[in-house]
Structure formats: structure tokens, C-alpha cells
């Protein structure tokens, strides 16, 4: 799945990837990759600024730790982030319901070409 198809949904995806446990940036990307069975493919370097943006908005927090002698920034969901994730899920369910109702409805005889 190309990055363009994910526009408008990236925030929800990133929040969902952090729901279970705090993760560093690359682990977030790996989590997205694993959950989508490899379908979600993003230019990795642009995901970090998106995480920073969510942190600025108060939806994520971050801590610097050390791993293998390197500095590592680990992100976690804040309570505001959990609420935002719930909202994103509600919106997505509504979106799927509405579009599913239209796209999956069988074409009734007599309506074709009417």
C-alpha cells in the first residue's frame, strides 16, 4: 500500500501501533508493517517527524533511553492519545459502515440504466 493511500489515517495508525506498549520509532514502523502483513510501506524517515507532531499535540510522550550504546527515543501513548485513538476507531467504523453499505449493496433489477 502506497503512502498516498494512507493520507489522513497515519495518526490513527501510529497511535494504534503504540497502544500495546511504548516503542522506539523503528519499532513503530515494524509494528505497522507486521500488523498489515507488510502492506503498509512508508518512507521510514518521514514517520519520525509525524511522531514528533503527535507528541507536540499531546497525544504521545517520549523518553530518551540507551540501547546498545546508542541514544534511543521511546514513545508512549498519553491519556489524550488513548482518547484520540478511540475517536479514530469510531470514525473508521462509521466510514467503513457507510461505504460498505454503498459498495456492497446488490444492484436491484430495474435500477440499471433507469
Amino acid at each position: 500500500m502506497r503512502a498516498e493511500a494512507l493520507k489522513g489515517h497515519l495518526d490513527g495508525l501510529l497511535l494504534a501501533a503504540l497502544e500495546g506498549q511504548p516503542r522506539h520509532g523503528y519499532a513503530v514502523i515494524q509494528e505497522l508493517h507486521a500488523r498489515s502483513s507488510g502492506a503498509v510501506e512508508l518512507p521510514t524517515g518521514t514517520v519520525y517527524p509525524a511522531l514528533h507532531r503527535l507528541e507536540r499535540a499531546g497525544l504521545l510522550g517520549s523518553d530518551w533511553t540507551r540501547s546498545g550504546g546508542r541514544r534511543r527515543r521511546v514513545y508512549f501513548l498519553t491519556s489524550a492519545g488513548r482518547r484520540a485513538l478511540g475517536t479514530e476507531r469510531d470514525r473508521w467504523a462509521e466510514f467503513v459502515n457507510v461505504l460498505g453499505g454503498v459498495l456492497n449493496a446488490p444492484t436491484l433489477p430495474g435500477h440499471v440504466g433507469a
Partner: peptide, 17 residues
């Protein structure tokens, strides 16, 4: 420095994978 440290960590992780 923060940007580089974060990117370096991710790049090394990706390379290790």
C-alpha cells in the same frame, strides 16, 4: 543532535533486520 541520534538508531535497527 536529537534528530541524528534518533535516525541513527532507526537506521542501525533497519540495517540489522
Amino acid at each position: 543532535a536529537d534528530v541524528v541520534d534518533e535516525l541513527r538508531d532507526g537506521l542501525i535497527e533497519a540495517t540489522d533486520v
